[in-house]
């Protein structure tokens, strides 16, 4: 029987296709979590009330913010789950090594995050339609979305980058736990413990982190920051996965 030389790129491509066909469950959870997000958003994500004699003004904002928040959470959990033993063993049912397995999962996650961010942003339209049809009273709905396709597109890209960054965190956390089960307990302790300590020392690290990411006004720098974080987290996860044994 002739021996076959294979290229990593070829196997990564095959693995992505395989994951795309096999892990259909992630789409179910995406739909459910985004619908849930829409449901929670129906109350309005922000509101303003003012009134004088004779009239009342109540303004509710319907935006996809909650849906995006939920999608970020979904990205974290999905990436986390993909590191579990059952999923990793699925990879090893066919040809792979750790490198191709991890690379294909990262690219697959990127595809997932792209879809999730598009649907998350589109859900704002669904939200407005639902609000218009079902909400009681004599509301006047002022439709105002993004001003131009360019703005809408950059919103989508920003969502994608955020979801992808949080998925990289989930992936790293999952890998650390797969590496040593002790981290199921240690990881939250270290994370929240350090947050607590830093807050005591008047340097709340989580606040700084969120400021660093979410309050960035330049889109270019925001892109660079999120990509840098994702790259760091995914490289660490790849390093760890190189030492994991499968099916022992």
């Amino acid at each position: 029987m002739s021996l076959n030389e294979v290229q990593t790129a070829e196997i990564v491509k095959r693995q992505i296709g395989y994951k795309w066909r096999a892990y259909t469950g992630v789409f179910t959870s995406l739909v459910i979590i985004q619908l849930l997000g829409v449901l929670f958003s129906l109350n309005g994500t922000g509101s303003m009330n003012s009134g004088r004699t004779g009239y009342d003004i109540s303004i509710s904002y319907f935006t996809a913010d909650i849906v995006i928040g939920f999608t970020i959470f979904w990205g974290f959990i999905t990436a986390f789950l993909l590191t579990t033993k059952a999923y990793r063993e699925d990879d090893f049912a066919f040809i792979t090594n750790r490198k191709s397995s991890t690379f294909s999962t990262i690219i697959y996650l990127f595809l997932l995050c792209s879809i999730a961010s598009i649907t998350a942003l589109l859900s704002s339209f669904l939200l407005k339609v639902v609000a218009f049809i079902f909400l009681p009273g004599e509301e006047k709905l002022l439709l105002s979305g993004a001003e131009s396709p360019g703005v809408w597109f950059s919103g989508m890209l920003a969502t994608l980058l955020l979801v992808f960054m949080f998925s990289s965190m989930g992936y790293l956390a999952g890998m650390i736990i797969q590496w040593n089960k002790m981290f199921v307990i240690l990881l939250p302790i270290l994370l929240f413990g350090s947050m607590f300590l830093f807050s005591k020392g008047d340097y709340p690290i989580q606040v700084q982190f969120f400021k660093f990411i979410f309050e960035e006004s330049s889109f270019l720098i925001f892109t660079l920051k999120t990509i840098a974080f994702s790259a760091i987290f995914y490289s660490l996860a790849t390093l760890i996965s190189n030492h994991l044994e499968v099916r022992q």
Binding site: L3, N4, E5, V6, T8, I11, R21, A22, Y23, T24, G25, A86, E89, D90, F92, A93, I95, T96, N97, R98, K99, S100, N242, R247
Partner: peptide, 23 residues
């Protein structure tokens, strides 16, 4: 260990083969 060439030319079959449940 961790070798793509060996993985491509080897198959390991046992009674705990894990295939995706969705397929």
């Amino acid at each position: 260990f961790n070798n793509l060439f060996v993985s491509a030319n080897t198959i390991y079959i046992d009674d705990q083969m894990n295939f995706p449940t969705t397929l």
